[in-house]
Amino acid sequence: MSDAPLALSILDLVPVRTGQTSAQAITASLGLADAADRLGYRRYWFAEHHNMPAVASTTPPVLVAAAAARTSRIRLGSGGVMLPNHSPLVVAEQFAALEAIAPGRIDLGIGRAPGSDPVITQLLRQSGTTSDVERFPDNIRDILALSSPDGASLRFTSGQEYAVHATPAATASPELWLLGSSDYSAQLAASMGLPYVFANHFSGDGLERSLSLYRSQFRPAAEGDVPRTFLTANVVVGDTDADADALALPQLRMMARLRGGRPLTALETVEQAQAAEASDALAAPLASWAAERWFIGTADAVTERLRAVASRWEVDEVMISPVAAAHEADPMDAAPARLRTLERLAAAA
């Protein structure tokens, strides 16, 4: 096994299992954030998804604030805020306030996707022209300016200037990361001199091209800026390969539902998934795909694969999405299998 350091971070969608309330799911995830802080992980980010029975991470700023109250070292952020759903000023205000709550520990990851189905997207985007996807680059620039200590200024046709600050008397800004899985996001991050995250956990296609475009076209926004990037990965660690496969099955079945346009449900337990798979084989077509793109196995095997991926693509860190499911006997307000994944990877890395 290589002795090269492996920098790890965490992406959390706050999964909701069968019979679990959102309060219990959030409690379980906050327990993981506390553990990640103790175990030495670099970042803990919450995703933004809407109207999904198996996902409780609808409001990253709220979850970040809750995690900030329980942690002392780890960086916290969004993975990401889906900017077309929100007013840039509101996003800037939320994350400027978070920076004041946890100085030097806040990341603002921004994405362009809706994070839901077309109906919910329309409900989220009733805010008017600020939700125009075509204004995405301008809205990012607005957030950068508004959340800086200097703030921004508006100039009226009369020539009068109006100062705008996301929060008064700011001394620092959250660090902004651009998220994506396409040429567009990679090139935009490069043109703005921003750090970039490739969303490998749901779209592994185009990784090489996106990273190449980002690095070759990078233009520093300030002196000393260099390209910074990492990628995400779905990870399940088990006692054995068979144990890991069982823990991954509920999430694979959820992925099959998404891809097949089937009705979504809360995340099955391991036992529920095994019983259902025996009759409907829902996840069977994804087995080889997951074996290649997900990281499922024992701690040493998964760590070695993650280290190899980080080395091959020369990324600064790998952000894992711990997708191990629950057993029927597991407590509703905890996530033992996800916690074991974090503990064992931290020990192996």
Rank of each mutant, 00 (worst) to 15 (best):
V237Q: 08
L123F: 03
T129I: 14
L178N: 04
G79P: 01
R141L: 14
F230N: 12
D330V: 08
A346C: 01
M1A: 13
P220Y: 09
S78H: 01
Y162F: 15
A246F: 10
V90F: 00
M255W: 11
A97T: 14
A68K: 06
P331G: 09
L144H: 08
L306Q: 03
A145M: 11
L98C: 07
Y196L: 11
L258I: 14
R43W: 04
H86L: 02
I26F: 05
R42T: 13
L144I: 15
S127T: 12
E277W: 03
G260W: 09
Q272D: 07
A166D: 02
A301V: 13
L249C: 05
V315I: 13
L6R: 05
F230Q: 10
V302E: 04
N51I: 11
A326W: 03
P84K: 02
L207M: 08
F95I: 06
A290W: 04
T21P: 00
A169H: 13
S2D: 13
H49E: 06
L108K: 01
A170M: 15
D3W: 06
A69N: 10
Q122Y: 02
P137E: 10
Y41R: 04
T298E: 14
R43N: 12
A113S: 15
A335V: 03
F156K: 07
S22K: 07
P5S: 07
A65Y: 10
T129E: 15
T303N: 12
N234S: 14
Y44P: 05
G115A: 07
V226T: 15
S78Q: 10
L258V: 14
A275D: 13
D316T: 07
A92L: 04
R17E: 12
L176C: 06
R344G: 07
P168F: 03
P227K: 06
P103Q: 10
A67M: 09
